[in-house]
Simulated scan of single mutants.
Amino acid sequence: MKKTAIVTGYSSGIGEAICSTLEMNNYKIIRLTSRLEDSQNIEGEVKELLKKVEIDILINCAGVGVFKPHEEISVSKIKELIDINLTAPILLSNLCLRSLKKTKGHIINISSIEAVRHSKFSALYTATKAGLRNFSLSLFEELRRSDVKVTNINPDLTKTNFFDEFNFEPSDKKEAHLLPSQIANTVLDIINFEGVITEMTVRPQRLEIKKK
């Protein structure tokens, strides 16, 4: 019988790769249609979904970024980052937990290397990703007796369209960036691990970026 996974950020990049990898390994993927900034619609969609199916895995992968002086960021952009990077994963975890407890399931949050370091022009993004990381680690402690696993993954520079709107991107050298497929394979390994991997940081060997 196929296990069921909700994956956000499924349309491109790491999320798309995770969906492809899981589908090749006999998982059924549920792709939510509500915008992650719209908590009311998310709540309604998930509640209707859970009337029909139990969830085995929740993977919060959707994310947006901004890297500029904090005073130059619009209020709407600040709200967008908090809503998508932090509020939506917390809300989805809340909505899915009763189902995940029944299936002894797994929550996997795709955070960022920025969650564990402090970079110039990354205060807002770092705040959202550090919040997601700490939510993950605390939630694991809460859920240990219920046998629900919680994992936080901190990917470093990965070749995706995440960088399309920025003035920098990962170097083209293969040793200086990760690929979405590598993160997806890591997710599969974490799911199949018999214990619990509560946190994993995945990095290329070298740190090199290039200006556009």
Results as ranks from 00 to 15, higher is better:
138 S>W: 06
145 R>E: 15
198 T>G: 04
171 S>I: 15
196 V>W: 00
149 K>W: 00
202 V>L: 10
52 K>L: 07
96 C>M: 08
148 V>M: 00
56 D>I: 00
184 A>E: 12
47 K>I: 08
122 S>F: 10
162 F>R: 02
110 I>P: 04
191 I>L: 12
174 K>H: 11
126 T>N: 12
182 Q>P: 09
132 L>W: 02
11 S>T: 15
119 S>V: 14
91 L>I: 13
180 P>T: 03
140 F>V: 06
31 R>H: 05
194 E>G: 08
197 I>K: 02
160 T>P: 04
15 G>R: 04
70 H>E: 14
76 S>P: 11
146 S>D: 14
142 E>T: 14
14 I>R: 04
162 F>W: 09
11 S>L: 14
187 V>L: 02
19 C>R: 04
133 R>C: 13
2 K>H: 07
47 K>M: 11
148 V>W: 00
36 L>F: 00
190 I>M: 05
151 T>K: 01
11 S>A: 15
94 N>Y: 07
99 S>A: 06
41 N>Q: 11
90 I>Q: 03
154 N>H: 15
111 S>K: 02
78 I>W: 05
15 G>A: 07
122 S>A: 13
93 S>G: 08
3 K>N: 13
183 I>T: 07
131 G>H: 05
53 V>G: 00
66 V>D: 12
96 C>T: 05
204 P>A: 13
98 R>S: 09
144 R>N: 08
9 G>I: 04
173 K>F: 11
76 S>Q: 13
45 E>W: 04
85 N>Q: 09
129 K>I: 06
191 I>R: 04
165 E>V: 12
188 L>Y: 06
129 K>M: 07
185 N>P: 03
104 K>V: 03
189 D>T: 06
39 S>H: 03
117 R>D: 08
83 D>E: 12
190 I>D: 09
160 T>L: 04
50 L>D: 00
84 I>E: 01
204 P>F: 05
200 M>P: 01
70 H>I: 15
177 H>F: 15
173 K>H: 08
57 I>H: 00
199 E>S: 08
152 N>L: 02
123 A>C: 10
52 K>E: 10
54 E>Y: 05
66 V>Y: 03
96 C>Q: 01
9 G>K: 05
97 L>T: 03
76 S>I: 11
44 G>L: 09
143 L>V: 03
95 L>C: 01
140 F>M: 03
51 K>E: 12
8 T>I: 02
83 D>P: 06
121 F>H: 11
81 L>A: 07
38 D>H: 02
104 K>S: 09
211 K>T: 12
36 L>P: 01
70 H>G: 04
122 S>V: 09
38 D>I: 11
14 I>M: 10
80 E>P: 13
20 S>L: 15
27 Y>S: 03
189 D>I: 07
98 R>C: 06
